[in-house]
Design a protein around this nucleic acid. Structure first.
Lengths: 251, 251
DNA sequence: TTTGACCTTGCCGTAGCGTCAACGTTTCTC
DNA sequence: GAGAAACGTTGACGCTACGGCAAGGTCAAA
């Protein structure tokens, strides 16, 4: 039997057969005088073994190990491990499909809208398209949501939860409007002190303390808030710094 | 912000960031005089967008297309296609896990035992470990099961079904024993004609005709049976040829 | 004789980065 | 001020399980 016949018999490509030879999964058979490989039925049996294990999802390396140790002892362990892995994949796929389903029901489908469900809840508290500063906030929240691991994300959501109250949302609209007004103002604008105080009052206490410690300590969040301040207009940045000062005095 | 800081912020490796630059998913930022990349917050926003789409399961090429066409029109199509793909994967994984579960309940776990459920049913009619010829038959059935596509497999199972009857199984044990006795015999052994006739009688009619046409025609199964005959002892091969002759005469 | 269907080896390509290598820069520490 | 640690740079190879192509050699039929 030559390689094409063997491959057709077992239902693979000749390239696959040669690949298995190369990896040592299948012994090289005798050669005919012209250099062609000459297979026997036992090669088909061996190849079929490899194929069935591969179709179960074992990697070719795992198959080599199983065939080397032979006789099922290790096979059971590998299969159990494989099943656990498949179970994990199954859950991951189901979770992704849930997220997809939630996304596809949305009216305004945009790459930015593909955040986690937790963050989607928070974003509903921040108006989109109305205020430049609110849009900036939304982008920052989106970045944080992408980068944070689930534990931090849950913590973050808890920090923000008080801002989801209706009166807090109403207050935030006023604050965003006043922040937008500072977009073209100078750093000594007289409206800054009042707005900084109102912002400090607006923030939930836990969030305020988290911000202060984050700015003070050398941990991951530190540089992040500074970079955020750098993107603001001079007046907005001054307002932000003033607010932080107020929060520090209170702490 | 330098590359490490950006990467930490969004939760990826610096290698990933550079990879996205290379693929054009993320614009190259300004460079500092020393050659370092200098990022702004908008780069973090862009990177976070890419990451969220990637975590949904889009390929980087698809992400580039979506970001190029921007504004959700194409995104919806891609996500629908992705969901269909995920659904397919989910079904495939579930099917594999069912096969794994069936396998793991078996007592003698061996690479050879990883056949399809259909073939497992057939193999129960062929004794394992008792007869050398029966073991050979089992191997051949295993090879066929691996190589055949599902349609052919179902057809094959139907051909074999009569052999699953209790009296057929009892007959087959006798036949296997007599075939084993021919392992060391010569091609002119006097027991051959009788055994060939009993074998011909044993085969279901549909199976017999399938064998004859398969041997006669130049289709895929033809060479396969010849190769099988080559692996037998001279007396067994003679018996096989004799049986085929009888089947042809009857047809 | 020529075509066409096989076979041979070998190398590049895939997706999404990880992981060196070999080197320059910045920053912390002593 | 000097050394070490921790950054940054580009470039190249590695991983899976083969597919595809190149550049041939071999064999049977037309």
């Amino acid at each position: 039997m030559r390689i094409g016949e063997l491959a057709a018999l077992v239902g693979v490509s000749t390239r696959t057969v040669r690949h298995y030879h190369h990896l040592g999964l299948l012994p090289e058979p005798e050669r005919l005088p012209n250099g062609y490989r000459e297979y026997r039925l036992r090669d088909a049996v061996a190849l079929a073994r490899v194929r069935r294990l591969a179709e179960l999802g074992l990697s070719l390396d795992e198959i080599r190990d199983v065939l080397a140790d032979d006789r099922g002892r290790e096979l059971r362990e590998v299969l159990l491990e494989l099943d656990a892995d498949l179970a994990r994949q199954e859950r991951a796929i189901a979770a992704r499909r849930r997220r997809l389903a939630a996304l596809l029901t949305e009216t305004d489908l945009h790459p930015d809208s593909t955040v986690s469900p937790d963050m989607a809840e928070l974003l509903r508290a921040v108006p989109a398209g109305l205020s430049g500063f609110a849009d900036f906030d939304r982008e920052m929240l989106t970045v944080i949501d992408t980068g944070a691991d689930p534990r931090d994300r849950a913590e973050l959501v808890e920090l923000f939860r008080p801002l989801l109250e209706p009166e807090a949302i109403a207050r935030s609209h006023d604050l965003y409007a006043r922040l937008d007004e500072l977009a073209d103002a100078r750093a000594d604008d007289p409206r800054i002190p009042g707005l900084a105080r109102d912002l400090a009052d607006h923030l939930p206490p836990e969030m305020a303390s988290a911000m202060v410690t984050s700015l003070g300590g050398p941990d991951t969040g530190g540089g992040w808030l500074e970079h955020m301040a750098m993107e603001l207009s001079p007046a907005q940045a001054a307002c932000f710094r003033s607010m932080v000062t107020i929060l520090k005095e209170r702490a």
